[in-house]
Write a protein that binds this DNA or RNA. Structure first.
Lengths: 196, 196
DNA sequence: GTCTATATAACGATAGAC
DNA sequence: GTCTATCGTTATATAGAC
């Protein structure tokens, strides 16, 4: 008896089931029959709810991204100093991994491939938008003297982005360390290093 | 006119072509026709050289891993102190990304999926072996006083592993920063942090 | 070593009954 | 909202000629 996704409508329920499979097995490697089997219906019945398999992953990703970037915007619009904002963005990202693990995993694993299709062009836009968020904060941090000047900012950006999101590969809710703990430790390493 | 893989035999040539496609498009998403097209032959002709598409990725991954873990073993067997060994493992890893980008990318993207098949059980073994390398060095570093004691070692291990290998997603040979430069900056961030 | 030709299976998707 | 039934396509892989 495994935990089942809680959803308000049959449509959302099916999307949650699909997201779990896409995240675990990959988009291309998940068949519409896999999704239907997990939902206890036949594959043809899925097409009463959705146009195509692509439409399903599209809705999963766009819904998630709208929510995530809303939170980014709130942080940027706030009055905290650059370092505090940077910490806040890191914490919101780990929270997203905790609350929307499947969506984050799908984006991490499939964005490159899906991005080659016109209907997923918004994925590249979101990537650019995300880069702007981080680069702005990092540059402000260097200007204000909070961050060291001898590092390549572009590389630091990639470093932070990658370290945060790649955690979705191993993080599982309910483990020894909460997503708050993990964010704390990541920020400690990032800001101060592991040398004693 | 793009650069073509240099290989000693037709077999190796085909493997290099397949590796490029597997790394770029994904294993499942690359068809044997894609590979044959890139090689300028028909799909059926591939089966003169290989049993199956799985055999191709199997040979690509196992060959690469044998080489990589040979280098790890050399470092561990040396007489350097824990911190120097840790730095050496990081540098060898970035060198692998530089010299075997496709193989690293395939392992990063497909290991979870391929690992579900019996013939790829060695991938999980290699993962465990890799974890042993890092955890041994980190624990020695903490014991010797070189590394701080207030961090979760398991988390630090994942942090290092992920940050190193995920670079394969954006690193391209010939860019502004060499793999040596990138290793330097990563080690600086990891060991000392980005705070000024 | 490659080609022609094709077997076989799995895939996404559709039409209409219930 | 789901089922029955199936279409059309694409995939891996095979057999034998050249």
């Amino acid at each position: 008896m495994t935990a089942q996704p809680v959803a308000s409508s049959r449509r959302d329920e099916l999307l949650a089931i699909a997201a779990e499979l896409f995240a675990t097995k990959g988009f291309k490697n998940t068949t519409v029959r896999d999704i239907a089997d997990s939902a206890g219906i036949l594959s043809g019945s899925l097409y009463h709810h959705f146009d195509s398999k692509e439409s399903m992953v599209d809705e999963i990703l766009s819904t998630f991204q709208d929510e995530l970037f809303g939170k980014y915007s709130e942080i940027l619009a706030g009055s905290a100093d650059p370092r505090a904002k940077l910490e806040a963005v890191v914490r919101v990202s780990f929270e997203a991994i905790d609350q929307h693990r499947n969506e984050v995993a799908i984006f991490q694993n499939e964005a490159d491939y899906l991005g080659t299709f016109d209907r997923f062009a918004y994925l590249a836009d979101r990537n650019q938008q995300s880069r702007d968020v981080w680069m702005t904060l990092l540059n402000e941090g260097v200007s204000s003297g909070a961050l060291r000047k001898d590092l390549d900012i572009e590389l630091v950006y990639r470093f932070i982005r990658d370290t945060v999101w790649v955690a979705v590969r191993w993080y599982r809710p309910g483990a020894k360390l909460s997503h708050h703990d993990i964010a704390d430790q990541y920020l400690t390493i990032l800001l101060d290093g592991i040398t004693s």
